[in-house]
C-alpha cells in the first residue's frame, strides 16, 4: 500500500481535504506561503514546543505559560517565555541555572535545524 501513501503529498494544494489521514502528525494548516518544497520549512512552533514543555513541567501554574516567537529579517528567532509572576523564579533558577539549561537544549535543537534561536524570559 506504499503507493497510496506516497500520494499524500498532493502536487496541487487546492484540495487538501481530499485525503483524510487518521492522525495529523505535523499539522499542515499553517503552511500558507507556498515555499519551495526542496527544503523542509522549519516551523518556529517546533522551537516553541521544547521550551513550553519544560516550562509547564516546572511551574505551579502551567496554564499561565506562554511562549511568543518572533523571527527578524536576519532569520534570528526570539522566543519570549512568559509565566505567572510567582513562577518566574522557577524558570530562571538559582543564578539563572534553569534558564541556562533550557538555552543549552534549545541550542542543540537549533543546531540540528540550522537555525538561530534565543530565549528571553519576560
Amino acid at each position: 500500500m506504499s503507493e497510496a501513501e506516497e500520494q499524500e503529498k498532493p502536487e496541487t494544494m487546492d484540495e487538501p481535504e481530499e485525503q483524510e489521514k487518521p492522525e495529523t502528525m505535523d499539522e499542515p494548516e499553517e503552511q500558507a506561503e507556498p515555499q519551495t518544497m526542496s527544503e523542509p520549512v522549519i516551523q518556529g512552533a517546533d522551537m516553541k514546543e521544547l521550551i513550553e514543555y519544560i516550562a509547564k513541567s516546572i511551574v505551579d501554574a502551567p496554564d499561565d505559560v506562554k511562549v511568543d516567537e518572533e523571527t527578524d529579517e536576519e532569520g534570528l528567532t526570539t522566543l519570549k517565555l512568559q509565566v505567572a509572576d510567582e513562577d518566574k523564579g522557577r524558570v530562571i533558577g538559582k543564578q539563572g541555572r534553569i534558564a541556562e539549561a533550557m538555552r543549552a537544549l534549545l541550542r542543540v535543537k537549533a543546531a540540528k535545524a540550522s537555525v538561530r534561536v534565543r530565549l528571553e524570559i519576560v
Binding site: I54, S57, I58, G93, R97, I98, E100, A101, M102, A104, L105, R107, V108, A111, K112
Partner: peptide, 21 residues
Amino acid sequence: GILIGRRGQTLSCLQYLVRII
C-alpha cells in the same frame, strides 16, 4: 557529541532539567 557538549556541559544541563522536572 551534540548531546554531551563541550566538557559534558549539555549533558549536565539535560540531567539537571530532568531532575528538576
